[in-house]
Structure formats: C-alpha cells, structure tokens
Write a protein that binds this DNA or RNA. Structure first.
Lengths: 239, 239
DNA sequence: TCTCCTATGTTCGCTACCGAACATAGATTT
DNA sequence: AAATCTATGTTCGGTAGCGAACATAGGAGA
C-alpha cells in the first residue's frame, strides 16, 4: 500500500537535473517527524535543512507573552531552514511539525557547499526563498484584513494542498495557535464550514469534503500565493 | 549645508570592499524620487534595483478591493527590488516612495551579473534578503496581535531610523494606507502620542520629540527587527 | 478678500473578536 | 464500570476597530 520513500517526492529535489541530484542523493537522510516536533527553535543555530516529503512544517513566531502566529507553511513543495544558505544561520521563527510524516535532511555544511556551486540548486533555492517572501507578505495582509472564517479556509487549503490524503490530523486548539486567534474562534469558524458541508471534523480529524466550495469561499490570499508558487517554481524549472 | 550625494550613504554599498565598490560605482545612477513615486508595480517586470540614500520606500501590498498594507520598509539600510537577483523578476508588492529623497539605481542586468560573481555583494544581498524576511514575518505578527497605537509607534520609529532629520513629511491618511487601517484610527492614535508629548504633528509634518518614551511604548516587534538587522548586517559585514 | 481644497477632529451605531467561565461528550486509563 | 482527560460547544460582557457622516481649520490660489 505505502509507496517507498523517495527524496524525489519533494518538488525541489524532483526539479534537480540528474547530475545535481546524483551528487546530493548520498547525503540525503530520511527522517520521520512526529506531530509537534520542533525542527529548529527561534534564535538557535540550525544544523540541517529539511526537505519534507509527506510532512508539513509550520514556521511559527512566538511572542514574549506566549501568543503565536504562523508566518508560512512548508510541505513537499519546499525546504525548511533557508537561513542556512541565506547566510544568517538562524531565524526568529520556530519550525514546528504540523502534520506528521517524513522529510529528508541535509547537513548545513552540505547545503551551503551545494549552494555555493551556483548551479541549478542555487537557482532553485533562491526562487523558493522568493516564494516564501510572497507567502509571508500575504500572511501579513491576510492577518490585517480578513476574518477568522476566511483565514481558516486559507489555512485548510494550504494544508490539504500539501497532503496526499483528504484527512488532516489537527485539533482546533492547534489551528488557533497557528492562526494566532482564540480556540473558540476556530470552533465557530469550523462549525460554519461543517454546517455548510465543506469539511467534516471529529476530535482532531479534519476531512475535506467540498474543495470547489472551499476555494469559492477562501479569500484572495490563497490564490495569490498559489499562483506565485507556480510561477516561481514550475515543475521543470531547473531542467 | 547639504552634503554631496554619495552611494556610500547607503549602508549596503558602504559595506562593500573597495575593489567591489569600484567596479559598481560607474554603473550607479543617482535619481531623485518624489513622495508617492512608484518604483515598481505589482506583477510588472522590474528594471532597476534602487539603493536609497535619503529616500524611504514602502513595500505595499494592494488588494483587489483597494485596501492595502505595508509589508516592509526600505531606507538607506537596504535595497529595493530583491526579486531581480532572487530570480523572480517581479513581486506581488508595489514599491512606493514614502519619504522623498535620493537613491542610486543599477540596471537589472548589472545587479544580476554582480550577484553571479558570488563575491561580497552576493553575500550582502542574501543577508539583506533574510533581514527582509524577518521584517515581513514581524509585520505579519504585529498585524495579528498589536493595537493601532502600538503599530503607529513601530511605524514611526522605523521611519525615523531611516531619516537624517527628526521631521517626517507624511499625512495621517497615508500612514493609514501603510498600516492598513482607517484614517480615523491613525488620527486617534497620533492624538494620543501628541498629548503624551512623544511627537508633534501639523498638517503633514510629524516631528519626533521624545524617542526614549517612544521606544518604551512600542511593541516588541520594533526591537526584534532592529536587532536582527544589526545581527545580519553589521557595519563591517563584507570587509 | 473670498473660495476651495486638504488635513485633521469627532461622533454614532455596528461587528468581530477577546477573555473568561462553564458544559458536554468521546476517548483513554484504571 | 468508574474516573480522568481531551476536544469541542456555548454563553456573556467588554473592547478595538470599522463604515459613514459631518465639522473645522490651515493653506493655496483666484
């Protein structure tokens, strides 16, 4: 039933020309990441970059008073730990596993060496980083102008886009942490979506029922980010 | 009275070793940029990067319904148009001159060539881009959790940090566009700051009176971004 | 001087969201 | 079966910010 794991399940790695991929492949280490695991913490030296295949990772900012907000989400479309090759070595955000699964990791030294070859991988990483900029910008705008209802739709679609299944394991409490709102607000918004038959959920299991209706309901932020990812990272970008 | 213009007034250009700077210097074109000028528009091909010296530029996202929000601000500490060397060629944001002044610009081809040399300039540009990521992330968080009062303090301090003078030419209406709130909200918040004797303003002229009090009043977002810029881009970074 | 425009001030009702407290029922452990 | 824990549902009063409408006053130009 379950497919064998392959680094090529990650879109960035899949985009690499054979020669470049062959050079990296022996260095790629498969890791299983459980829900809630922290891949790196705010301000701490990052040791590896991660290329998620089936896992989804949230970049979360946690404030002094404990309040938090998600600033971006990374699945098999991206890489976790861009500050390693950007030169900063660390970030102000926390990388939290939002959906359990697998990822391939590379040691910091390895990715930096690969980046410095200035080949297809560098090109790819830079474009991905710009896509990440877009996602953060749109998150800022969405936080400013849109309702919890709309943001929940966006968040769910972003998550389901990065999942192979139509079921997400995630409590309303955790979603509230990501969106930076109260759990009660998520309960209400999720109730609306369930009553409208767009999703079904039950104690930490959320199932997507009606994607078209969901896409009709979501704010523009979802589409803008999705199109920009497709523009910046078409499937054959590096080939 | 007025100093002669020099590209070295921009911190990034000032950080470059003499040899690298000498190579670029003949290509740098001084431009005067008036308040309200658009350096590039969302989705449009970017022709030049700009290194502000005395000008301040807002990266603004404008939504379909016309509502807007600032996602980052660039002064003599940075460069406008990172997507040129990041590979995307364009961005979803608009670059709007928020405070009139001067900037030096480079043609897209030139900056891309310089970037591809993989020398100190590339290093600098990548670290600056990470600083920009930080600023966007913090903007997203601030939009989520902080009041208009706090955000106005942050915005004013960010602006005054990038100005040589203690007077900013800016109406409440424009500030409201940047913050993505109503003009009335800015009127009220600014009134509070004026009554507390932190600023003085009068028909489009804002004067900073009491910076220490302002820094005591601002939310953590200001300090986080400022410290991260200092960490990523210390004055002698590339030398 | 008069007029017009622009920047700012003020008010009112409304809504989304907050913080807190408490209820309930499925799931898990004993 | 009982006890406990966890996820979700519900309510209530409070507040920040919204949208709209209108007032006022400084500055610029006729």
């Amino acid at each position: 039933m379950s497919r064998p794991h392959s680094p090529r399940q990650n879109h960035l790695l899949a985009s690499l020309p054979a020669a470049d991929y062959a050079r990296l492949e022996p260095q790629l280490e498969l890791v299983e990441v459980p829900l809630g695991q922290v891949l790196y913490e705010s301000g701490m030296q990052i040791r590896h970059v991660h290329f998620p295949t089936t896992a989804i990772v949230s970049l979360l900012y946690v404030m002094q008073n404990g309040a938090s907000a998600e600033i971006a989400v990374v699945g098999n479309d991206g890489i976790v730990g861009v500050s390693l090759f950007m030169g900063g070595e660390t970030t102000i955000s926390r990388a939290l596993v939002q959906s359990a699964g697998h990822a391939y990791r590379l040691r910091g030294k390895t990715i930096k060496e690969e980046f410095c070859r200035a080949g297809p991988m560098q090109h790819l990483l830079l474009r991905y980083t710009q896509a990440l900029l877009t996602q953060m910008a749109q998150t800022a705008v969405c936080n400013r102008h849109h309702t919890v209802d709309q943001q929940l739709c966006r968040w769910l679609l972003l998550s389901f886009d990065r999942l192979a299944t139509s079921e997400l394991i995630m409590t309303q409490e955790l979603i509230a942490n990501m969106l930076g709102v109260r759990r009660e607000g998520v309960t209400e918004a999720a109730g609306n979506l369930q009553r409208a038959r767009l999703i079904e959920y039950h104690r930490g299991h959320i199932k997507l029922i009606d994607r078209p209706a969901m896409e009709a309901r979501v704010c523009e932020c979802y589409g803008v980010v999705k199109r920009e990812f497709e523009r910046l990272l078409p499937p054959d970008i590096a080939k």
